[in-house]
């Protein structure tokens, strides 16, 4: 591993915005409105650690993942990977960066080409990035299957012959094929059964230890994110509300939204569960086309004050390594 970069962040995201335009209205009254999927998001990820990104549906967590590897073009802001500003890289230059940043998708049934064999799926990234000779690629493919816990004899099979968990392993092998430093994992275990989830999560942890990988782990399963992450960022309507080390954010959540989120997660223990004081949030997430003025969580917040209606709070460090965007602190 490159010792030089160990301390600095491998990925820096600064004031990132991604707006999606939608055209509304008829012929005469045409107007374009914007869905503010990400609205000024900033965070750092250190090498070898895992940042968990949690939030409800529509909070923009998947968009963050996809914008980082430039599957979406950011509206504004900066993405700095390994010291390079990749925000405006051309497709050609981006190709090289993608050797270092790979992605694992949510749906193991849709993210593998059904007409390719496992060998073709796993060697394709190496071909694209011109790594190794064809024989070496095949060798490496069976090596990769070994690493992720599949039998190398499966190389000639097609995706439909595998279960969901096995397919997710193939997706993992494909991501590892080019020896990336950074993997964006977008809900990688959500579609799997609990006993299979544990297998995949343990594989993730082993690989991180073995290859010094850095993960951005996106999920709505807060207990799972807390388990795998070093730090957690909580998103709400396109903005990060709070970030802190994962134990800290569970034990001392500062933001009212995080507090509600943490108590909403059920604990598999009837005694603890029936005694627990749960903060139940009223209502649903607001629309991210017409964001509420001031703090975007205000309509659901029981502590909302006058200032919350007027000024959007900034993400500030209130305790060591604990950042929160709330006027209460």
């Amino acid at each position: 591993m490159n010792v030089k970069t160990i301390d600095g962040p491998i990925l820096q995201v600064k004031r990132l915005k991604k707006y999606f335009p939608i055209k509304r209205g008829g012929f005469l009254k045409k107007e374009t409105v914007f869905v503010k999927a990400i609205d000024e998001v900033s965070f750092n990820v250190k090498k070898g650690e895992t940042l968990g990104l949690v939030g409800e549906t529509g909070s923009g967590k998947t968009t963050v993942g996809r914008t980082i590897i430039r599957l979406y073009k950011p509206t504004s802001g900066q993405i700095i990977f390994n010291g390079m500003d990749i925000t405006n890289f051309s497709e050609n230059k981006m190709q090289k960066v993608r050797k270092e940043i790979q992605m694992i998708f949510q749906d193991p049934y849709a993210s593998l080409d059904p007409r390719l064999t496992v060998e073709e799926i796993v060697t394709e990234p190496m071909e694209i990035h011109n790594l190794y000779t064809p024989e070496k690629r095949r060798e490496r493919a069976s090596e990769l299957l070994n690493i992720i816990g599949l039998n190398p004899e499966h190389l000639n099979r097609f995706p439909h012959e595998f279960s969901g968990g096995q397919r997710q392993r193939i997706g993992l092998a494909r991501a590892l094929a080019v020896e990336p430093q950074f993997i964006v994992c977008d809900e990688p275990v959500s579609a799997l059964d609990v006993s299979i989830q544990a297998q995949i999560i343990n594989t993730f942890e082993d690989l991180q230890e073995q290859f010094g990988l850095t993960y951005l782990f996106i999920s709505h399963d807060i207990a799972m994110v807390k388990h795998i992450s070093d730090n957690i960022a909580v998103m709400y309507l396109g903005r990060i509300m709070e970030t802190a080390p994962s134990n800290e954010i569970y034990k001392h959540p500062l933001h009212p939204y995080t507090q509600a989120l943490m108590t909403a997660v059920p604990i598999p223990d009837p005694q603890a569960e029936k005694k627990r004081a749960r903060i139940v949030l009223e209502g649903d997430i607001s629309s991210n086309i017409n964001l509420p003025k001031g703090c975007r969580f205000r309509p659901r917040c029981k502590y909302a004050k006058k200032i919350c209606e007027e000024i959007e709070p900034k993400l500030e460090e209130k305790e060591t390594n604990h950042f929160v965007a709330c006027h209460l602190y």
Partner: peptide, 9 residues
């Protein structure tokens, strides 16, 4: 089953 799920606490 019990040990396969991470507990938030």
């Amino acid at each position: 089953l019990m040990k396969a799920v991470p507990k938030i606490n």
